[in-house]
Design a protein around this nucleic acid. Sequence first.
DNA 1: GCTAAAAATTCTGCATACAGTTTTGTAAAA
DNA 2: TTTTACAAAACTGTATGCAGAATTTTTAGC
Lengths: 225, 225
Amino acid sequence: MLENRDLVYEHVYEAILGQKLAPGTRLSEESLADIFSVSRTIVRRSLLKLSHEQVVQLRPNKGAIVASVSVDESKQIFFARRIVEKAIIELAIENHSEQDLKALLSIVKQEKACFERGDRYAGIRLSGEFHFKIAEIAANSQLTKFHRSLVPQTSLIIAQYEKRGITHCSYDEHLALVNVIREKSTLKAVSLMMEHLDHIEEKLNLDELCLSDDLHAVFAGIKDN
Amino acid sequence: MLENRDLVYEHVYEAILGQKLAPGTRLSEESLADIFSVSRTIVRRSLLKLSHEQVVQLRPNKGAIVASVSVDESKQIFFARRIVEKAIIELAIENHSEQDLKALLSIVKQEKACFERGDRYAGIRLSGEFHFKIAEIAANSQLTKFHRSLVPQTSLIIAQYEKRGITHCSYDEHLALVNVIREKSTLKAVSLMMEHLDHIEEKLNLDELCLSDDLHAVFAGIKDN
DNA sequence: GCTAAAAATTCTGCATACAGTTTTGTAAAA
DNA sequence: TTTTACAAAACTGTATGCAGAATTTTTAGC
C-alpha cells in the first residue's frame, strides 16, 4: 500500500516547513500529479497524510490548500508545543550520546552560516531540523510524531503572523540549548526551551488586531464556509 | 475529498477501541468493502487514516492488520499518555462548566452499570469515552488529536498484555477524578490521573518475559519481514 | 507419506475513466 | 455599468480494471 518513499508528501512537507508555500495556496491534484509525474491516486494519498498532520486543509469538492491557522488555533499549537518540547528535551538529556551533541552542533553551525549569508529559507529549514534532532534523541516515537505535526504548523503561523521586519533566527538560543543538554541540567534546559518558544511567539502579531498584509491570514476560515 | 461521515473508519476505530478486533487481525480491503457496501477506494482511505493514528499497520503488498504493539512501544505510549493526560486535565480544570461535570458523571454512571451487568466491551468503550470527554473539555484541538491516537493504542496494549483474570474496570477512579475536577484542585487531579494510569499499567505484563497466550503479540513483527 | 516446486488463486498497488460539483467565463437584461 | 442567468471548463469523488506481488493449493518427485 505504501511506496518506499512518498516524494509528493516529502516535497510538500518540506516546502511548507521552509515557508516556500504560503497558507491558502491551492494544491490541485492534477498540477501536483503533473509536476511529480505520478497519478492523482498518489497525490491524494499524500494530501491525506498532510491533512492528518494538519498542514494541509481538505475542503470537500473544493480541493486542498495549504492550511491557514487562526489566532486561536495558533495559541493552542504553541501551548501544545510547550508541553511536547518540555517532555522531549527532558528525555533528550537522559538519552543523548556524544555523537548526538555533535550532530546538534553541526546543525547550529549551518544555521549560523545561513544567517550570515542571508539565506532565510535554509535557515528556517535548519531551525526545524534542530528541533527534530532533539526529538529523535528523545526516542519516543509517539512524541516525535506529534512534534512532527506541530513544527510545520509553527512555520505556517510564522508565515501568517510574523511582525514586519523581524528576521527569524535563533541559532544563538539553539547553541545555548546544546550546552545545557551537555551539562545535563534539566531545569535549565526546560526553562531555556520555554524562553526560546516565548521569543518565537513574541515576534508574532497574535494579540493585536490583524495588521497582516496576508489576505489569506486575514480571511482564513471565511472562504471555506 | 471527504464524505460527510466515514463509516468504515468510524466502525473499525470503535471496534479496536472496544477490543472487538484483536491485534494482528487482517483487514482485507475487499472484505471491508463488501461489509460496508463501498468500493475499495473508500476502504483504502479509511485504512490510511487509521494507520496515521497508528492503530492499523499497513504492510506493503501484504495488506492491513490491526496494529500489534511491542513492549517497548507500549512503554512509550504510556509515557506519552502521562504527558498528555496531565496537560489535558489541567486545562479541563480551568475550562469546565457545570454541564461538563454532568456529562462526565453520566459516563461514570453508565460505566458502573456496565460493570455490574458484566458488559466488558461497553465498559471499555465508556472508559475511553470518559477520557475523550475530559479532552473535549480541555479544548485544545492539537492535544485532543494526539490523545485520540493514544487511547485506542492503549486498548491494543491491554488486549495484548493484560494479566489473566484481571477485569479492567476503573469507574471508581473516574468518579474520584470528576470530584477533584469540580474542586478545581489541580495538583490532586494530576496525581490522581497519574495513579490512574499507574493502575492500568500495573495490570499489564510489560516487564516479565512474555507469558501471553496471544501469538500475535508474541510474534509481532516477525511475520511481516 | 513427506518435501519441494509449480500452478492457480487471491489480494494489493496504481492508473484511469466517468459522474457530479464547483468555478469560471460570457452574454443578455436592467 | 452593473447584475443575473446560463453555458463551458476545470476539478474533485468514486468505481473499476489491470498488472504484479503474495499466498494458497496442487502436483510431481523422493
